[in-house]
């Protein structure tokens, strides 16, 4: 590049004036980086323009800069509070948002806990209901079994009559000879006192020979009050006595509650 011609073109004066386009400015800047004589020329132009424009200035009042200083510090001191206010604003909003978020989260957690509690309660309830259903089904099947026994024509029905101990007591035995099973219905017997248990006997009459069919240990628990006992004996009569817990080897006849003979 012919730098002298470049300088002589007058572009550097326009560069200092600020009347070039941005693109032209960038080009001049590139040239200035390469050619020290171009920079020197720019400095000269600038210096002469400073003289020219400075010559135009009226006499400056002494306090002009202090006015500028006070404007700057005023702007600074007003800018800072505004900034702080804005900061406060954003801080407030920020805090408010976090508080709202926390409240939201807390209520969600709370809701969640309540729902969990509900689920647990519901599960417990469901288990209880399932249990009840199981019990009911069991009861139903028991009752059905009992019913089917009662309806079976092959079953021997033996009513047991009240004895001296308790004139209101009664019971019945449904004896399935074929399957060697005896169903004892004791719904008419009073609840045995603590430490006592009913014992069921199969009797041979001549001579009187009692054989224990078993004790009714679950008298209180059994709602149907019908007990199924094995009876492989050739029974002629059935009796129920109140015996000490665990049962006795032979019936205590003073505590004979009911007695009935098989009529076949």
């Amino acid at each position: 590049m012919d730098i002298k011609a470049y300088i002589a073109s007058g572009i550097l004066e326009l560069y200092v004036y600020g009347s070039l386009s941005e693109k032209e400015n960038a080009e001049v800047y590139q040239v200035l980086q390469k050619y020290p004589e171009a920079i020197a020329e720019v400095e000269r132009i600038e210096q002469s323009l400073q003289q020219l424009s400075g010559a135009l200035a009226p006499e400056q009042s002494d306090h002009l800069f202090s006015k500028i200083e006070s404007k700057i510090s005023l702007e600074n001191s007003t800018v800072i509070p505004i900034g702080q206010k804005r900061n406060n604003w954003t801080t407030y909003i920020g805090w408010a948002a976090s508080v709202a978020l926390l409240i939201g989260l807390f209520s969600q957690v709370n809701k969640n806990r309540v729902l969990r509690d509900k689920i647990v309660k519901n599960q417990i309830e469901q288990q209880l209901l399932e249990g009840k259903i199981n019990v009911a089904e069991e009861d139903l099947s028991n009752t059905k079994a009992i019913l089917s026994v009662l309806r079976n024509k092959d079953i021997l029905q033996v009513p047991l009559q009240p004895q001296q101990v308790d004139p209101n007591a009664y019971a019945a035995v449904y004896w399935d000879k074929e399957n060697e099973k005896a169903y004892i219905d004791v719904a008419g017997l009073p609840t045995p006192p603590p430490g006592k248990v009913y014992q069921v006997w199969s009797l041979k009459l001549n001579p009187l020979t009692p054989t224990s069919l078993g004790t009714l240990d679950t008298f209180t628990e059994n709602d149907t009050k019908i007990f199924s006992l094995a009876n492989p004996n050739d029974s002629e009569a059935f009796g129920i006595t109140l015996e000490p817990e665990g049962g006795s080897a032979s019936p205590t006849l003073e505590m004979l509650y009911t007695l009935g003979t098989v009529t076949s």
Binding site: Q50, G54, A57, Q60, L64
Partner: peptide
């Protein structure tokens, strides 16, 4: 400041207004 004042004064031609603008 003299350059600024000179430029501004050349446009406004009023000392009081120019001093305001210089500030």
């Amino acid at each position: 400041s003299a350059n600024v004042y000179g430029i501004v004064f050349n446009i406004l031609k009023d000392e009081t207004l120019s001093e305001e603008v210089v500030q």
